[in-house]
């Protein structure tokens, strides 16, 4: 099981701030994870419609979509950042 946390409009569209998910073995990279989540329902589909813009963090560090997520205990999924 891995804890996934969502922020901003990704959180609103999926309609939950976090969840624990059992990932299939076929999910290797951050990009695989986004593609898998997108199949879980309408909210996920709406949140992850354009996966290229979505950012992923593994254990609170940014990762690229082609990086593996093995060893993750927490994965953050969120839109481009707009702080400052």
């Amino acid at each position: 099981m891995v804890k996934i946390v969502y922020f901003a409009w990704v959180r609103e569209r999926i309609d939950k701030p976090e969840e624990e998910i059992e990932l299939p073995a076929s999910v290797v990279t951050a990009g695989d994870l986004l593609a898998y989540l997108k199949t879980l329902g309408d909210g996920y589909e709406a949140a992850l419609e354009y996966p290229d813009v979505i950012r992923v963090a593994v254990n609170q560090e940014h990762v690229e979509h082609d990086e593996p997520i093995a060893g993750a205990h927490e994965i953050g999924i969120f839109p481009p950042m707009t702080g400052g």
Binding site: F7, H62, M81, T82, G83
Partner: peptide, 9 residues
């Protein structure tokens, strides 16, 4: 900070 610190407005 604007491009990589996780804040959203």
């Amino acid at each position: 900070l604007k491009t990589s610190a996780p804040f959203w407005k």
